[in-house]
């Protein structure tokens, strides 16, 4: 499952310097994702996280992701 999320994030942020997905509990439904991308520069944290939610809309909607923690940074 982590691989699926990572590939969705890589697809949404092709220029990301870092994409990391951690399965927090090992159960495949509680995740910590980290994305470092220039795309976030100049955006509020709310808008940065919205982009991540958009990228993961499918696993969020189908209930695959039960809990999601997000860390974003806008770096080149």
């Amino acid at each position: 499952m982590s691989e699926r999320l990572e590939s969705l994030l890589r697809g949404a942020f092709p220029d990301a310097r870092e994409v990391a997905v951690v399965d927090r509990t090992g159960g495949g439904d509680h995740f910590q994702v980290t994305v470092v991308s220039p795309r976030f520069q100049g955006l509020s944290l709310v808008d940065q996280h919205r982009l991540v939610y958009d990228a993961l809309a499918e696993p969020l909607e189908d209930g695959t992701i039960h809990e999601l923690r997000i860390t974003t940074r806008g770096e080149r």
Partner: peptide, 25 residues
Amino acid sequence: SNWPTIPQVFVKGELIGGADIVQEL
């Protein structure tokens, strides 16, 4: 709010974020 998860925090009508952002701030 155009925000898919709970919790959500608003200050003076503006969405500040969910748990991660509020904790970070």
